Simulated scan of single mutants.
Amino acid sequence: MIREFIYKYYIDPIRYGQPYTLVDTLTYALILLVCIWLIYRWLEANHISIDREFVYSLIPWVVFGGCLRVVEDTGYITSDLHVIFTTPLIFFLIFALAMPVLFIANICEKRGMVQSWKKLFQWTGIALTLVTLGFLTWFGLTNAHIDTLVGLAILTMATVTTGLLYTLIRYGFGWHYMQDRLYQMLIFGHMLDASATSFGIDLHSVPYIEQHVVGSALIDLTGTAFVMFPLKLLVLIPGIYILELYRREGASGIWYLILLAMIMVGLAPGIRDMMRMVLYV
């Protein structure tokens, strides 16, 4: 019975690319929270500062994760190894790549080999992203095609909706702390996710589907994927408000990690979905 449960809700969805269920969604959310806490404790134990520069240094790794996920979408990896490039296993893959680099970069700074370990860590993430983008470009040119207009349309939608939401929160609600670049990055990441989902399901010629439970239910209910935008509003606005209350209590380290996790769950799938649609995979 336990074996069947594990296969039904965890192994088979990963193996066959099935949509998420309520069970695995809640499980992965819980795992994410536990991982944030464990990473926080590990960073503190190793006296690694968790600040704004730390978050900035990790953003390229988030972009790298989103691009690397598309490698599996191309079908280029035909062996069983392709499952480690699927969600949620790819999060552990990126973690397994990033943590040794972070540790080595930190040692390099302590030994005076580099001025800032965060810059070295950041540029490593940028280099890996460029390599992955190079592969995807090669694949698009030789095996599929690259539709830059699709990418431009999605980025335009994300930019416009980010501007509108920022204006609403900053001037409509009077939340002056929205001038913080990290909050703006949070909004853009989730607007990119909503834009890619909306475009892919309602406007793209390839029949993409929404795999997440809540989003899929709302799309079925309303008949349009553009319902993702109000859904994001319902999550982002109270989320930002609670985050700011938490920051004012002085818990800056864990605040940065939670904010980074929120950026990641919007930006990474947004990049992945956009790149899929550009390549038609």
Rank of each mutant, 00 (worst) to 15 (best):
W138F: 15
L279A: 01
Y20L: 12
E72V: 01
L149D: 14
D12F: 10
K8Q: 12
L130P: 08
H204S: 08
A261P: 03
L89K: 01
I94R: 06
F103M: 03
V206W: 14
M228P: 10
N143P: 07
T162M: 04
V70Q: 00
G250T: 00
F103D: 09
M264W: 08
R247T: 07
H47E: 12
Y7L: 14
S198D: 06
L22N: 08
P88Y: 00
H204L: 06
M157S: 12
L58M: 15
V71N: 02
P100F: 02
F199W: 15
F92A: 09
G163M: 05
R170G: 06
C67V: 13
L93G: 01
A217F: 11
Y171W: 14
T142V: 12
Y10R: 03
L133K: 09
P238N: 03
M277L: 10
I94L: 08
Q211M: 12
I107L: 14
Y56W: 14
L203T: 10
A261M: 05
W175P: 07
A127Q: 08
D147R: 12
D147F: 11
W255T: 04
I201R: 04
V281I: 10
Q179R: 13
R3W: 13
E249H: 07
V150M: 07
A217K: 07
T148F: 15
G174V: 01
I154V: 12
T129Q: 04
S79E: 06
T156I: 05
F5K: 05
T162Q: 04
A194S: 09
I84Y: 07
P207C: 09
G66H: 02
M157F: 13
W61M: 02
G65N: 08
M113L: 14
L32D: 09
D202P: 02
C35T: 15
V281D: 03
I146G: 02
G215M: 03
H82G: 09
L120Y: 11
M99V: 15
L43W: 01
I271H: 00
T124C: 10
Q211V: 13
R3E: 15
T142W: 12
A105M: 08
R111S: 11
M191N: 12
V23K: 05
L30I: 15
D80L: 14
T124Y: 04
R181W: 00
L58G: 13
M262I: 04
V227Q: 04
V278C: 04
R272T: 00
V160G: 09
I240E: 07
